[in-house]
Each structure stands twice: as C-alpha cells, then as structure tokens.
Nucleic acid binder design. Structure first.
Lengths: 220, 220
DNA sequence: ACATTTCTCTAGTGGTCGCTACAAAAATGA
DNA sequence: TCATTTTTGTAGCGACCACTAGAGAAATGT
C-alpha cells in the first residue's frame, strides 16, 4: 500500500557495538533519530488505551515523539502500524494464554491459570486495562482491522478447544465433554473479564470472578 | 448545547384522529415530513451496528432518510441523539434483564433466565448482534458517552447484586454467598456472550455457554 | 571534496467530520 | 389574502482526518 515501508531488519543492537551479529555494512543514509522499538511501544500503549479509530495519526506522532513522515517511513500507514502493534502486543503482553496452554499438565489447570493471570494482566497499573485484542477494534470503520482482531479472538478459543479435546482423548476429561462449548465459555469469560477491567474492576474482583468460573454456582 | 432542540411531546397519534388525549391545538408551523419514532428506530439500528464514533451524521441522515437540519432540529446534536437512542434501546431491546430480575422467584432463576434470553436476543437476525450498551461506545473519543454506557453496565451489575443479596437475606442463598462477585460474574458472562455474538456465535452456542455458566466445570 | 542515500521538517493535499446560515416551502391564525 | 411559525433543502462553515511533496540535514562511499 505505502511505497516506502522499510522492511529491513531493525538495527536492534544500535550503537553499543556489541559482539553480536550485526548487519554487514552500516546503513548508507542519514540515521534514524529515534528508537524504533520504544516508538512502537508508545504506539502499543496509545492503541491499547484508545483503540484503532480514536487514536489519530497526530496522537501517534505526539506520543511517539516523531514527525508524521518518520512514522510513515518507519511503519507504513496507520493500518500497517496497527497490525505490527497487534503482533507485538501479542508477544509482549498477550502470550500468557498460550503459555498456560503449553505448560500446564491439564486443560483445566491451563484454563484456571489463564483466568488467574488474566486478572493480574488486565488490571496491571503499568499499562491500560483490559485486552487490546478485545477492545481496540470494536465498531471500527475499517472492516479489515475489525476482522483481523476477531480472527485472533476466535483463534484463541480454537486453541483452548484443541487443548480440551486433547484431554478428552487421553481420558483426563470425560468423553462426553462438549469441548467447543467449554472453550467458548472460557473465551467469553476472558472477554468479560477484560470488559470488567475496563469498567473499573480490581484484580481481586477479577480473581473472585475467575474462581467462580472454575467452581460452582452455590446450590440453594 | 443545541439551541433548537424540540422538547415537545411527539404527536404519536398522528393523523388517525383517535379519541385519545391530543395536544390542545394543532402545531403552528410546517408539519414534520417524517415519523420521529421510525427515524429514531433507524438511528438505534445504525448506532447498534457501528457504534457511536463510526456512525457519522451523514450515515444517520441517510438511514433515517432526513436532512441534517431536520435531524438536529428533532433530536439535538449527535450526542443527545445517541443518549435518546440508548434510552430507547433499553426500553425496546434491553429490558429482558430487568424483567427477569423482577419476575423470577429467585436470583438463581432470574440469572438463568437472563442468560438464556441474552442468547436469544443477542443473536436475533432482526437486528444487529450483541448488546448496544456493551459495544457502541468502547474506545470513544467523547469520554462522557463512554462513561454513560459504563455507568449503565455497572448499574446492571448492581441490580443483579441487590437481587442476590435479597435472596441471601431470606435464606434462599447461603449466608456466606459473595453477592458482589456472583453479580460481577453474571455481568461478565453477559458481556462475554455479547462479544461472542458479535464474533459469530450462534444462539445454540450461546445457550450452551449459559448452561455451563449456571452449571459446572466437569470434574476429572 | 563531492555525489549518493536516507531521514527529518515544514507545510501543505483532498476528504470527511459535526454542525449551521439561509431562503424557499408548507402549515396555521387573523 | 396575508402575516406568522416551523420544517425543509441547499450549500457551505471551520476543524480535523490520514497522508505526502519537497527541501534541507546528516550520514556514507569514492
């Protein structure tokens, strides 16, 4: 779309002249005056807090502290910057679900840990509350952006479902378990917790929520 | 804000000259060329589908089939039209929760019915999926609008909590019940179901979700 | 030194936003 | 008939949107 998107590997090593593998030659032209990684982090926080639409390019240039041409040259247009933001958000903040699924011995333990860590993550005062993937592109006038995040949400539920089905296969869960419904319930729970975090719920309140989701409605 | 908002009672009886109470005199000037109620319904559907920000005034004038001056004269500015839309949405589409709380004999029955009816309502093909109050003002650059819907969401949870506390008081629920957490769990569940409806879940899938929320995670 | 490459800064582009001034149109009261 | 009241259509307001042309600045290669 944009003609001047730089697809080069970003020179993470910077100027400290470390012994790590460096690009063979120094780049030719005027060097970039800002650190791409920290600028991207600022963009993550801005999109996380205000969403795709409500974060204008001039908002971005202000918080990233760069001019508009620098932004377009380094990240492409607003939409491709957002895509990179979402990808990087997944790496830096959204990986707890995948980790729980990979590391816990059972689906039940994975989901319990996932919900517990969501309570912590979604209320961390170090960054905006809730989940960027849930909230940053609802009611978006760019349908591809909305669809992209929808795809990620549904992929997460599919991953939970696979983990549950694996436990059903090994007998760790009863054979009549409705894996799809159980996975969707977990996804809905996480999304509801994210909404609650946005609406002011505390970590303790979200943890109580998670406990109820894993336990029982009290019998009368 | 807008100087020309008409606060008159809308002449719902119209031209059928019924025997009901009518305004004492006919209005003086040129009569309105559109039906205010049906125009409002169109606005509800537009805001419901696309949200506050992504629904532009020119979108509204197109779907309501009126000119911009007519819109501003009949409904005030965009924000006050949205407020009226939210109020009317609550009356026409969002009252199932209050009805369940008022009509069911126990909090548990009320919540069970609430979730069941949410599954139906949120996937009704006759209108946009999910809940307007949940989705129409997330990531909104007008903070008052966002805050207004947040207030409604939290008020709904508070109402559920009151109903639960009433059951605890009468002994219909155990005295150690955490009413706040249970209410918040229900709210999160409803919000998660709304998100799921937006993401393509069917009525049956949401009903399975509701059943899980009211029942149990299967024991291994 | 000088050409080349790349980035940064200024200053915009056309387009859409929410909103409104103005005058013609359509009703009523006299 | 004619003045009054209100709505309607046209046409356009300033502000902001995402985005970029073009010139100068800062690095490298020769």
């Amino acid at each position: 779309m944009h003609p001047m998107v730089s697809n080069k590997v970003s020179n993470k090593e910077g100027e400290e002249a470390g012994a790590k593998a460096r690009p063979a030659t120094k780049p030719r032209g005027r060097p970039r005056s800002f650190d791409r990684e920290t600028a991207l982090e600022k963009a993550i926080l801005a999109f996380w807090e205000h969403g795709y639409e409500a974060t204008s390019v001039s908002d971005l240039t202000r918080v990233m502290d760069i001019g508009a041409p620098s932004l377009y040259s380094a990240f492409g247009d607003k939409q491709s910057l957002f895509e990179e933001v979402v990808r990087e958000y997944g790496v830096r903040y959204g990986s707890f679900a995948d980790r729980a699924l990979a590391e816990e011995p059972t689906a039940r333990a994975a989901v319990a840990r996932m919900l517990r860590e969501a309570a912590t993550e979604y209320t961390d005062p170090a960054h905006p509350h809730g989940c960027l993937v849930v909230h940053a592109a609802t009611n978006c006038s760019t349908p591809e952006v909305e669809e992209s995040l929808r795809g990620r949400r549904n992929a997460n539920i599919a991953a939970i479902r696979s983990r549950i089905e694996a436990d059903v296969a090994t007998g760790a869960l009863p054979p009549d378990t409705d894996a799809a419904a159980l996975a969707r319930h977990t996804g809905a729970m996480i999304q509801g917790m994210s909404q609650q975090a946005r609406d002011g719920a505390s970590r303790e309140e979200l943890e109580a929520l998670a406990e109820i989701a894993m336990a029982n409605w009290p019998r009368t």
